[in-house]
Structure formats: structure tokens, C-alpha cells
Amino acid sequence: MPALPPLASLAQLENSPSTDDGLPAVLEEDLRAYGCKLIHQAGILLTQKQVAVAAAQILFQRFWYVSSMKHFGVGDIGMGALFLASKLEECPIRMRDLINVYDVLLQRAAHTIGPKADTPFKYHPMSYFGTAFYDLKESLVVAEMQILKRLGFNVHVVLPYGTLINYLQVLGLIKQENACTKAWGYLNDAFQTPVYALYQIPTIVCAAILLTIRHLNISLPSEAPNCWWELFDACWEDMWNVCGYIMRLYRERPEAEQKRVLGLVSKKDVRRWLEDNVPDK
């Protein structure tokens, strides 16, 4: 029997440390998603393996059930998570490469919301021995250590891909055009949501399949007592919740809301935002 990965408790779900510090739940959700996008983009720029990127995103999501965004920035923790997950998946990356890549991503984000947003973005590399590099390196080491410590060193993650292929095979959908690609995509998008820290893998995979078959108009037995998801020990409410988390990613947002997260990457930004917007705190 393989070890089970940790999942957030009901108490942790009801009150996250960030909302306890006054951060609105919607903003925390947006920052989680943005932090995961940064990890994903950094992974692509570093040509890192997807298993490491996915593991990093899961660790990142777990972290915010034991830590507040007032005390840790999503940029730093994302960088630490990718560094750590790369070691865990036996494909370590160089600190300098990771730091450079995050520097590009953060400079670009700052440019997008800066005064010269209408001009093309030009990256200014940091100097090789400059303090900027050593500051980022220090944050990276601290972030990695904080993730380990706050997750109690239980960094076991289970990825959904193998399970998806198995289930599609059982359902006879593996040869169905687009079905696998679509479900795979939903699973990858789900990394931007907290579901991997909340639900078991079979539930998440079933949710991705549910979205896929609805989208592609494929019908599977769904009337009690013959429900296809029960083959995989998923239950409808949980599956439907996961679908909700995923579909929320695709909703239309005003531009201001979309850009809001770009300026809240560090804990300093979040603190300033809290001072300006949450007078009681």
C-alpha cells in the first residue's frame, strides 16, 4: 500500500491563514492561480519536466493552508516550490537559472502594470554579482526551507496522469478523438486551483473526465445504480465541486481584476494592499 499524500483538513479549508489576516478569499484564490502560472511559465522557460512543475504546483497549493500571504510572497514560494520539486523528481535545476527566469517573469509583470505599459517590454538582466541576485538567492533558500518546514517535510505528491489513462481505458474512451487531450488539459489547468490539496486523485480525474464528456457530447451511464464514476470511488458532490473550481478559472474577469494580482507578488505588496484596503487590520 503506497503512502497517501496529505490533504487539507476541514478546519484548514474553512479558514485559510491568509483570510485570517484579512485577505479576501477571492483575492487569495487569484494569487494562488497567478503563483501557479508563474511556476508553469518558469518551468517552460527552463525546459523543466512537467512532473516537476506539477509537483511544485501541488506543494505551492498546500503551503497556503498553513501559511499566510501576508508573511510569504507567491513569487518567492513559487520559486522555492519549483526548486524543491525539481530535486524531488530527480531533475535538479541550477539556482542561478531559476533566479534569472523568475527575474524575467517578474520584470515583465511589473512592466505590464507600470507607467510604460504601452511600450514593448525589454528585459534588463541583473548584474552577475549584484545584490539583486544575492537577495533573490537568499529568498529562494529561505522559501525552500519554509516549504519543507511548514509542510512537515511531507512532500509526497501523487500526479494524476497515469490514473487518467487507466480510467479512460476502462471507460473505452482512450481511442476517442480529443478525449484524452481534453481531460489532460483540464487536469493541468486544475493545478492552478487548490483541488490537489483538497481531493483525492480519483475524484479529480473523474471531474476532468466529466468535463470532457460533457464538452464532447459523449454519454456514459449516469443513472443510479449504474454511475460510471462509482467505478473509480468518486462521489458526485466532490466531483462537481472540482468541476466548479476548474470552470471558475475560465470565467470572464474585468481587466482591473486580472491585473490586480500582478502587483501583489511579494509579501510587501500584500501588506501594503491590506493596509490600504482592510482598515481594521
Binding site: 490533504l7 483538513s9 498553513v66 519543507l148 511548514r150 512537515g152 511531507n154 443510479a224 445504480p225 470511488d233
Partner: peptide
């Protein structure tokens, strides 16, 4: 209420450890 039994490979959610700091 309609209930099904879990496979040994998918134990109830409560069997998963919580996210706990050191």
C-alpha cells in the same frame, strides 16, 4: 443513503494525513 464501498486503493479521505507543520 446510497453508499458504495471503497477500493483498497482509494481509502476514505480521512485516511490521508493532514497538512501539518514541523
Amino acid at each position: 443513503p446510497p453508499r458504495y464501498n471503497h477500493s483498497v486503493y482509494v481509502p476514505p479521505r480521512t485516511r490521508h494525513p493532514a497538512i501539518q507543520s514541523s
